[in-house]
């Protein structure tokens, strides 16, 4: 990227307050969760450990010492939210990363090779599109996880990948079909470059920007979806805190101790907002056609 186009890109990113806010939210959360994940720096972000029971301070409403209040066992809700961040942020990356990896390789080769391979991949992807994918993923995760509590989170991620890959396969294939027609790929073919080499050096770099946009947007969606899995007990085994599960656990305390549910849910929302604002900002950069159509 030349200097001027880089500065144009930066101009678009910072010219739009929503994108700035989105990137800001994400950076803040990444820093926060990195600090929380590493024991020596944990105390920098939260005053209390996430799992220390203190029945004397149980059911305290939000205050200066307990920003988000305390739960039934006197655990600090803020500390538990902070401790949950590393997991809740890592999971969308893992799920979307794996879905992209599978979809990109299947879609690229299906699109590039064509013929019956393409047909087969497309039909299978169609089949998956016809499933009610979230309900299917929940069922898969529940069946797999019913007997092994410690593996539930892994199974939930697997289930999300199972329903996540077809989208990227289709996206990659459509893009490849388009790129294949472009003069420079034609020229590369004419000069006798091998198919895999063309895909690696010409097609994948072109795809990267498009995939990056959708993956960022998808990250926020996956975060919310996974929170539904955690909500239904298909996430990390207790007592490890997790935002979705904290909301579910807090429902039983309504209408009194609303802060058990409310703050974890609010944090999820802000994080998802960060992904969606940043993703739409990225889209404005890469796809000028859609600029300003938020």
């Amino acid at each position: 990227m030349s200097r001027s186009s880089a500065s144009v890109t930066l101009g678009i990113i910072f010219g739009n307050w929503a994108t700035v806010a989105g990137v800001g939210i994400l950076v803040a959360f990444f820093v926060l969760s990195a600090l929380a994940a590493w024991p020596p720096t944990y105390h920098l972000v939260a005053r209390y450990p996430p799992d220390s029971l203190n029945f004397g301070a149980a059911n305290a409403p939000p205050s200066l010492s307990h920003l988000f209040g305390t739960d039934r066992e006197g655990r600090d809700v803020f500390a538990r939210v902070v401790a949950a961040l590393p997991i809740d942020i890592a999971i969308p990356f893992e799920v979307v990363g794996a879905s992209v990896a599978i979809g990109l390789s299947l879609g690229t080769f299906a699109g590039y090779l064509g013929g019956w391979i393409e047909e087969l991949v497309l039909r299978v992807a169609d089949l998956f599109f016809a499933f009610p994918n979230i309900v299917l993923a929940l069922t898969i995760a529940a069946i797999l996880g019913s007997t092994q509590e410690s593996l539930r989170v892994v199974y939930s991620e697997l289930a999300l990948i199972v329903v996540g890959w077809p989208f990227y396969t289709r996206l990659a294939r459509a893009q490849v079909i388009m790129i294949k027609q472009m003069p420079f790929v034609r020229a590369a073919e004419a000069s006798g470059l091998g198919k895999f080499r063309i895909v690696r050096t010409h097609v994948i770099p072109h795809l990267a920007s498009v995939i990056a946009v959708y993956a960022t947007l998808d990250m926020g969606t996956t975060l919310l979806l996974y929170s539904i899995f955690a909500f239904f007990g298909l996430g990390v085994a207790p007592p490890t805190p997790e935002l979705g599960r904290m909301v579910y656990d807090g429902l039983s305390a309504l209408p009194g101790n609303w802060w058990w549910s409310f703050f974890p849910g609010l944090v999820l929302m802000i994080l998802a907002l960060g992904f969606s604002l940043a993703g739409e900002g990225l889209r404005d950069v890469f796809d000028p056609r859609l600029r300003g159509q938020r």
């Binding site: 929503a18 926020g220 919310l224 929170s227 539904i228 909500f231 979705g244 909301v247 579910y248 429902l251 309504l254 209408p255 609303w258 549910s261 409310f262 849910g265 609010l266 999820l268 929302m269 802000i270 998802a272 907002l273 969606s276 604002l277 938020r294």
Partner: peptide
């Protein structure tokens, strides 16, 4: 933009707290 980033249980919870 805000509402679609809210997990469904948060909206439900908010309505429950306010209107119920």
């Amino acid at each position: 933009t805000t509402v679609r980033s809210a997990p469904p249980f948060l909206v439900a919870l908010g309505f429950l707290l306010i209107f119920a």
